[in-house]
Simulated scan of single mutants.
Amino acid sequence: MSTPDNTPHLPRRKRSARLSLAMMGASAFGLSACGQPEQTTDVSFDSPRSYQSVDECVAANVYTQSACEDAYASSLEQVPRYTSIEQCEAEHGEGACVAPTEEQAQMATGGSGGSWFMPALMGYMVGNMMSRTSRGATSQGLYQEPVYRNRQNQGNWNAATNQASQRISQRQQTMRNQATQNRQATSQRSGFGSRSSARGGWGS
Protein backbone atom coordinates (compact mmCIF):
# COMPACT_ATOMS: atom_id res chain seq x y z
CA MET A 1 0.00 0.00 0.00
CA SER A 2 1.49 3.35 -0.98
CA THR A 3 2.13 6.13 1.52
CA PRO A 4 -0.36 8.99 1.19
CA ASP A 5 0.99 12.45 0.37
CA ASN A 6 -1.60 14.25 2.48
CA THR A 7 -2.56 13.79 6.08
CA PRO A 8 -6.20 12.99 6.89
CA HIS A 9 -8.56 15.96 6.92
CA LEU A 10 -11.62 16.48 9.02
CA PRO A 11 -13.69 19.46 10.15
CA ARG A 12 -12.84 21.16 13.41
CA ARG A 13 -15.17 19.96 16.09
CA LYS A 14 -15.18 19.62 19.86
CA ARG A 15 -14.63 15.99 20.75
CA SER A 16 -16.92 14.17 23.10
CA ALA A 17 -15.45 14.34 26.59
CA ARG A 18 -16.87 10.92 27.37
CA LEU A 19 -15.25 9.27 24.36
CA SER A 20 -11.96 11.10 24.88
CA LEU A 21 -11.72 9.80 28.44
CA ALA A 22 -12.50 6.28 27.31
CA MET A 23 -9.93 6.44 24.53
CA MET A 24 -7.17 7.64 26.80
CA GLY A 25 -7.99 5.09 29.45
CA ALA A 26 -8.80 7.76 32.01
CA SER A 27 -12.17 6.22 32.66
CA ALA A 28 -10.38 3.03 33.67
CA PHE A 29 -8.00 4.64 36.17
CA GLY A 30 -9.32 7.99 37.36
CA LEU A 31 -12.92 7.53 38.52
CA SER A 32 -13.81 7.86 42.16
CA ALA A 33 -16.88 7.65 44.34
CA CYS A 34 -17.47 8.56 47.99
CA GLY A 35 -13.85 9.66 48.27
CA GLN A 36 -12.52 6.19 47.42
CA PRO A 37 -10.70 5.71 44.09
CA GLU A 38 -12.29 3.19 41.78
CA GLN A 39 -9.50 1.02 40.44
CA THR A 40 -9.39 -1.08 37.32
CA THR A 41 -9.09 -4.80 38.03
CA ASP A 42 -9.25 -6.16 34.47
CA VAL A 43 -8.49 -4.83 30.99
CA SER A 44 -9.02 -6.52 27.62
CA PHE A 45 -8.25 -5.36 24.08
CA ASP A 46 -9.09 -6.43 20.58
CA SER A 47 -6.73 -6.26 17.59
CA PRO A 48 -6.35 -2.67 16.35
CA ARG A 49 -7.13 -1.73 12.75
CA SER A 50 -4.92 0.66 10.80
CA TYR A 51 -6.15 3.49 8.57
CA GLN A 52 -4.37 6.04 6.45
CA SER A 53 -7.11 8.64 6.78
CA VAL A 54 -10.35 9.41 8.56
CA ASP A 55 -12.21 8.73 5.31
CA GLU A 56 -10.66 5.26 5.10
CA CYS A 57 -11.68 4.59 8.69
CA VAL A 58 -15.27 5.65 7.98
CA ALA A 59 -15.40 3.65 4.73
CA ALA A 60 -14.35 0.49 6.57
CA ASN A 61 -17.72 0.66 8.37
CA VAL A 62 -16.24 -0.60 11.65
CA TYR A 63 -16.46 2.62 13.66
CA THR A 64 -18.81 5.56 13.39
CA GLN A 65 -17.63 8.73 11.69
CA SER A 66 -17.54 10.47 15.05
CA ALA A 67 -15.37 7.70 16.53
CA CYS A 68 -13.01 7.80 13.52
CA GLU A 69 -12.63 11.56 13.84
CA ASP A 70 -12.14 11.47 17.60
CA ALA A 71 -9.55 8.70 17.34
CA TYR A 72 -7.62 10.66 14.72
CA ALA A 73 -7.64 13.79 16.88
CA SER A 74 -6.46 11.84 19.93
CA SER A 75 -3.73 10.21 17.82
CA LEU A 76 -2.48 13.66 16.91
CA GLU A 77 -2.20 14.48 20.60
CA GLN A 78 0.14 11.49 21.00
CA VAL A 79 2.51 12.34 18.13
CA PRO A 80 5.93 13.41 19.50
CA ARG A 81 6.45 17.19 19.37
CA TYR A 82 9.74 19.07 19.07
CA THR A 83 10.73 22.72 19.31
CA SER A 84 12.84 22.63 16.13
CA ILE A 85 12.91 20.59 12.95
CA GLU A 86 16.59 19.79 13.63
CA GLN A 87 15.66 18.25 16.98
CA CYS A 88 12.88 16.24 15.36
CA GLU A 89 15.06 15.01 12.48
CA ALA A 90 17.83 14.03 14.90
CA GLU A 91 15.34 11.63 16.45
CA HIS A 92 13.37 10.49 13.42
CA GLY A 93 15.64 10.99 10.41
CA GLU A 94 16.26 13.59 7.75
CA GLY A 95 13.12 14.56 5.85
CA ALA A 96 10.86 12.71 8.29
CA CYS A 97 9.53 15.78 10.10
CA VAL A 98 7.02 18.49 9.27
CA ALA A 99 5.38 21.49 10.86
CA PRO A 100 1.73 20.75 11.73
CA THR A 101 -1.02 22.35 9.73
CA GLU A 102 -3.14 24.88 11.58
CA GLU A 103 -5.87 22.27 11.85
CA GLN A 104 -3.48 19.63 13.23
CA ALA A 105 -2.05 22.10 15.74
CA GLN A 106 -5.57 22.95 16.92
CA MET A 107 -6.44 19.30 17.46
CA ALA A 108 -3.10 18.36 19.02
CA THR A 109 -2.72 21.22 21.49
CA GLY A 110 -5.97 23.19 21.43
CA GLY A 111 -3.98 26.18 20.14
CA SER A 112 -4.06 28.00 16.81
CA GLY A 113 -0.56 26.96 15.84
CA GLY A 114 2.96 27.33 17.11
CA SER A 115 6.58 26.82 16.20
CA TRP A 116 6.83 23.09 16.83
CA PHE A 117 7.46 20.07 14.62
CA MET A 118 6.45 16.43 14.50
CA PRO A 119 7.24 13.29 12.48
CA ALA A 120 5.05 13.21 9.37
CA LEU A 121 1.76 11.51 10.27
CA MET A 122 0.92 8.64 7.92
CA GLY A 123 -2.30 7.50 9.57
CA TYR A 124 -3.42 5.90 12.79
CA MET A 125 -4.59 2.68 14.43
CA VAL A 126 -7.87 2.20 16.30
CA GLY A 127 -9.10 -0.57 18.60
CA ASN A 128 -11.57 -1.35 21.38
CA MET A 129 -10.80 -1.57 25.08
CA MET A 130 -12.98 -3.11 27.78
CA SER A 131 -12.25 -2.45 31.45
CA ARG A 132 -13.75 -3.67 34.71
CA THR A 133 -13.44 -1.77 37.96
CA SER A 134 -13.17 -2.82 41.59
CA ARG A 135 -16.85 -2.00 42.04
CA GLY A 136 -17.88 -4.34 39.23
CA ALA A 137 -18.64 -1.64 36.69
CA THR A 138 -17.56 -2.16 33.09
CA SER A 139 -16.81 0.37 30.39
CA GLN A 140 -15.87 0.15 26.74
CA GLY A 141 -13.94 2.75 24.81
CA LEU A 142 -11.51 3.26 21.98
CA TYR A 143 -7.76 3.37 22.10
CA GLN A 144 -5.57 4.63 19.26
CA GLU A 145 -1.97 5.04 18.16
CA PRO A 146 -0.50 7.41 15.56
CA VAL A 147 1.40 5.93 12.62
CA TYR A 148 4.27 8.22 11.63
CA ARG A 149 7.59 8.38 9.86
CA ASN A 150 10.94 7.80 11.52
CA ARG A 151 14.43 6.65 10.57
CA GLN A 152 13.53 2.97 11.11
CA ASN A 153 10.53 2.81 8.79
CA GLN A 154 11.60 5.57 6.36
CA GLY A 155 7.97 6.29 5.57
CA ASN A 156 7.07 2.67 4.76
CA TRP A 157 3.42 2.17 5.73
CA ASN A 158 3.69 -1.49 6.71
CA ALA A 159 6.83 -0.94 8.76
CA ALA A 160 5.29 2.09 10.43
CA THR A 161 2.13 0.19 11.39
CA ASN A 162 4.28 -2.61 12.83
CA GLN A 163 6.03 -0.07 15.03
CA ALA A 164 2.68 1.42 16.07
CA SER A 165 1.50 -2.09 16.97
CA GLN A 166 4.56 -2.53 19.17
CA ARG A 167 3.79 0.72 20.99
CA ILE A 168 0.20 -0.43 21.52
CA SER A 169 1.40 -3.79 22.86
CA GLN A 170 3.66 -2.02 25.35
CA ARG A 171 0.80 0.19 26.45
CA GLN A 172 -1.53 -2.76 26.82
CA GLN A 173 0.98 -4.63 28.94
CA THR A 174 1.45 -1.60 31.17
CA MET A 175 -2.31 -1.29 31.65
CA ARG A 176 -2.69 -5.00 32.35
CA ASN A 177 0.12 -4.85 34.91
CA GLN A 178 -1.57 -1.89 36.58
CA ALA A 179 -4.89 -3.74 36.60
CA THR A 180 -3.23 -6.76 38.22
CA GLN A 181 -1.68 -4.56 40.91
CA ASN A 182 -5.05 -2.90 41.54
CA ARG A 183 -6.76 -6.29 41.77
CA GLN A 184 -4.17 -7.51 44.28
CA ALA A 185 -4.48 -4.31 46.31
CA THR A 186 -8.28 -4.67 46.38
CA SER A 187 -7.96 -8.29 47.47
CA GLN A 188 -5.49 -7.39 50.23
CA ARG A 189 -7.73 -4.64 51.55
CA SER A 190 -10.66 -7.05 51.60
CA GLY A 191 -8.60 -9.66 53.43
CA PHE A 192 -7.33 -7.10 55.95
CA GLY A 193 -10.89 -6.08 56.76
CA SER A 194 -11.90 -9.70 57.28
CA ARG A 195 -8.97 -10.36 59.59
CA SER A 196 -9.75 -7.21 61.58
CA SER A 197 -13.35 -8.33 62.03
CA ALA A 198 -12.17 -11.77 63.13
CA ARG A 199 -9.82 -10.29 65.72
CA GLY A 200 -12.67 -8.19 67.04
CA GLY A 201 -14.74 -11.34 67.48
CA TRP A 202 -11.93 -13.11 69.34
CA GLY A 203 -11.73 -10.37 71.89
CA SER A 204 -15.46 -10.22 72.60
Rank of each mutant, 00 (worst) to 15 (best):
C88H: 03
T64L: 03
G141S: 12
R149T: 13
A22T: 01
R135Q: 15
V126K: 00
F29S: 00
A198M: 03
Y124E: 01
V79Y: 02
Q144I: 07
P37M: 07
S115I: 14
V54K: 00
S75P: 06
A73H: 00
T64I: 03
A185W: 09
E77Y: 00
S196T: 11
F117N: 08
V126M: 07
C88S: 02
T7W: 07
S50P: 01
E56K: 04
R135S: 15
Q173L: 06
N162Q: 15
P80H: 00
T3W: 02
S53Y: 11
M125C: 04
S53R: 06
M1Q: 13
S2K: 13
A60D: 06
G114R: 06
S197P: 03
S44C: 07
T109W: 05
G110A: 11
R171I: 12
Y148H: 15
S187T: 08
A96E: 12
T3N: 08
N162W: 09
N158S: 15
Y143W: 13
T64D: 04
T40G: 09
S16V: 08
A60C: 02
A179K: 04
L31F: 02
Q163K: 14
V126Y: 00
A59L: 12
N158K: 12
F45W: 02
R15T: 10
S131H: 02
N162D: 15
Q154G: 08
G95W: 10
I85R: 07
R12K: 03
L142Q: 10
A28V: 01
S169H: 03
G201S: 06
A60S: 09
R195V: 11
G113L: 11
S194N: 10
H9D: 14
Y51M: 09
M122S: 01
M23D: 00
G111W: 01
R132S: 12
Q163H: 13
H92D: 03
A99K: 14
T186L: 14
E77S: 06
A108F: 11
G136L: 13
Q78A: 10
V58F: 00
R15I: 10
Q104P: 07
A108W: 06
D42S: 12
P100W: 06
M129N: 08
G203S: 11
F29Q: 00
E103Y: 04
A59E: 15
R195G: 02
Q184P: 01
G155D: 07
I85W: 00
M130Q: 08
S139T: 08
R13L: 09
L121G: 01
Q166C: 15
S196K: 10
G35F: 00
E102Q: 13
S84F: 03
W202H: 01
N150F: 02
A185E: 11
S165E: 12
V43M: 11
G203T: 11
H92M: 09
Y82E: 04
